[in-house]
Write a protein that binds this DNA or RNA. Structure first.
Lengths: 227, 227
DNA sequence: CAAAGTATGTTGCTTGTGCAACGAAAGAAG
DNA sequence: CTTCTTTCGTTGCACAAGCAACATACTTTG
């Protein structure tokens, strides 16, 4: 009973899969445990993404290098997070990103080829894994779409209000946003101080109410969606 | 031999599946052909997305209704296009969008339940379909990510240059963009005239060269990516 | 060839917002 | 309580870009 099984159980990739099935699932997939030294690469830009990596230990960064050599940080991976699923599923032959370890890490690599092809045993948890993987990608897709609708708006007010009304639908009249101001500004792709300024205006106009990260949309519709 | 088989063959959903396998695949999936009258709904917001729809004939619109009732057009569907794959795969229980027919249409509905579950026959093309569907979603994912990186930029120049350098990587030094000016402006989420203005400046400064939709990035890196 | 329609470029005006710098408030730590 | 750190709000300034209106191609059609 490997020590990282609890970690895997909590991963959305392996949701609804019994712990006792994990060993056979892993062997069925030809999973290999890999140690990545600090600054080592779990996946290199240019290589074919042929596996899904699940972080067991440490911390890794997904980065994209511009032609100029400057690195853009795309995301941070902690234990339980994974990478490569989108690229592998898309059939990309040259990865546009690299995955490097910010500190010594361990990664569980699942060969992609053996994930989609039905295994000879036609194990039930295998097809469950595929379903989970698809769900993960599809949900990421929806999150991207949601943010894109926001970034399509041109003014801070429109972006914030669209974000807040979406939250309102999901969480009810009065809700807490999972961001502090800086993170919210980054999510909306606007300047923090400009966001603060606009929030003040909107509160003065009675469009929204907020305290800390508690928000309430008083009258969002009439104020913005004129078209 | 149904008349719409050639259409299905060309769909990325059914890539690499033989035409002779299509009938058994469709029956295996419990596919049903549905007629949608003008202004009729192929899928309604609020309902559970339980199928993937492939447009056989006509034209449909994917729309999102705001609380205020104003409709936002998200995409247009022509024969060969399909909808619902992301929502179904994500396990969304209430569709946030509706699919309505702009003109009398016919749609082939594939029940989602039977797509992921391995069929009793364990037919090879069935798993090929799953692979195709996953690839479709994953690629859409990459496209969204790509555009999002662009919309994260704050100036027109940055957005355009990021877009052009991405194109350059894919298509080589001198390339044609698949947009006219208006479409390009919309993709970059900027004003058309402002884009035109900025393009003029960039040409004067020797950063880019272009004629019609033929573009060339002369010196993009030093001009923009200072950080 | 002429006329109509479409795509692209130009320009003045206005404003939203990025940017920087500072101040206030709220915790966290000693 | 004091001090340090972090978060959040405020403000002056400059300018990028939205908007509208018009001019100039370029294309299509009759």
């Amino acid at each position: 009973m490997k020590e990282f099984y609890p970690l895997l159980m909590n991963s959305p990739l392996l949701a609804s899969i019994e712990e006792r099935d994990i060993p056979s699932l892993l062997s069925c997939l030809g999973a290999t445990e890999v140690s990545v030294p600090r600054d080592g690469f779990a996946m290199m830009a240019g290589d074919e993404p042929d596996h899904i990596g699940i972080v067991l230990e440490g911390r890794l960064q997904v980065i994209r290098e511009d032609d100029s050599g400057s690195r853009a940080l795309l995301s941070l991976l902690s234990p339980g997070d994974f990478y490569g699923e989108t690229l592998a599923c898309a059939g990309v032959v040259q990865s546009p990103v690299s995955v490097v370890a910010g500190q010594p890490s361990r990664v569980l690599k699942l060969g992609f080829r053996r994930i989609l092809s039905t295994c000879p045993n036609s194990c039930a948890f295998h097809s469950a894994l595929v379903g989970n993987m698809v769900a993960v990608i599809a949900r990421k897709n929806l999150m991207l779409q949601s943010r894109m609708e926001i970034l399509d708006k041109k003014t801070i007010r429109e972006r914030l209000l669209l974000y807040l009304t979406n939250q309102k639908k999901q969480r009810g009249e009065k809700f807490a946003v999972p961001f502090d101001r800086s993170e919210l500004a980054e999510y909306l792709a606007v300047d923090r101080s400009a966001l603060s300024r606009e929030m003040g205006r909107m509160r003065d106009e009675g469009v929204i109410r907020f305290h800390k990260n508690q928000f309430e949309v008083v009258d969002g519709v009439k104020q913005v969606f004129k078209n």
